[in-house]
Design a protein around this nucleic acid. Structure first.
Lengths: 147, 147
DNA sequence: CTAAGATAGTTCGTAGTACGAACTGTACGG
DNA sequence: CCGTACAGTTCGTACTACGAACTATCTTAG
């Protein structure tokens, strides 16, 4: 029996805290969390529906609707793939780019503030452990580091 | 400028990872995440609607519907408050208790596995920092430590 | 070259989530 | 005892998510 009581609860509570900050920044930008996630993913580079679905852990039918709504708001565009007549790539519009950047910056700012009370070395240690956990579990890159 | 690039992204990605495990355990128990959260909260003790709403960061109308659906499945019960004729407390049924315990145990197990690769002292350090962040930000207790 | 099967996306029906506004009923203070 | 504050519910709307059924394109075997 590994005596790690509390690790699980700490992870759950921390993740609820982070999600609540994320959701708050979303709503301040007129986004819902799945919409923001989509913008962040295609912000890195345009993607096909068939790539996006597993990255966002959605079925293709769910993704279709999400892209519909985000496209209707004018933040992304569906572009036919030249290589494959069946495929479509989703890319940011200029407005989508601005919104994605603003959202990303503000979220980063809010979360950085949140851990500002920690001593810098502890903060770095914490970030590196978190990164390690994440990278050992094949999490799709859903929120990039600032370049 | 505090040079903590990466902390924010690490937090976001970690929280998406934890949420995906949480959601997976939910669906294995026939629950949705908000339903599981409700069970975990009232698992500690029965609560009024007016207490639950802020704990779960929901408007009262949203909570009403959530409790409806969970009650329809037979996992919680609405009980009139003897002290206040307007108020209602939400409590687990026997089946709800079993489900909440099973869900909690399995989630704890899955998340503990997830960090099992870390050396024990690092794991403890990580948990204590996470706890510290959480407790500095007034997060409602949405997932208890094992008793 | 073409028929069969695989792949990419969409549409549709259903259920759950979340909100605000409007509503009912109880409690309480003046 | 009346007015107001409070506790919950209901209703209409929008978003999220799924699976099944569908269209259209690509690929491959014969």
């Amino acid at each position: 029996m590994p005596e790690a009581p509390g690790v699980a609860a700490a992870l759950v509570r921390l993740s609820f805290l982070v999600q609540s900050v994320y959701a708050e920044v979303c709503s301040q930008h007129g986004l819902t969390p799945p919409q923001a996630q989509l913008l962040c993913v295609v912000s890195e580079c345009p993607r096909r529906m068939s790539e996006l679905a597993p990255m966002m852990r959605l079925e293709k039918s769910s993704l279709s609707g999400l892209v519909d709504r985000v496209e209707r708001k004018g933040w992304v565009r569906r572009v036919a793939s030249p290589e494959d007549g069946r495929a479509i790539t989703v890319e940011l519009t200029a407005g989508g780019r601005r919104l994605a950047d603003a959202f990303h910056a503000r979220t980063t700012e809010r979360l950085t503030e949140m851990v500002a009370c920690m001593p810098p070395d502890e903060r770095r240690a914490f970030a590196s452990i978190a990164d390690q956990i994440v990278s050992e579990h094949a999490v799709p890159v859903v929120f990039q580091d600032a370049p």
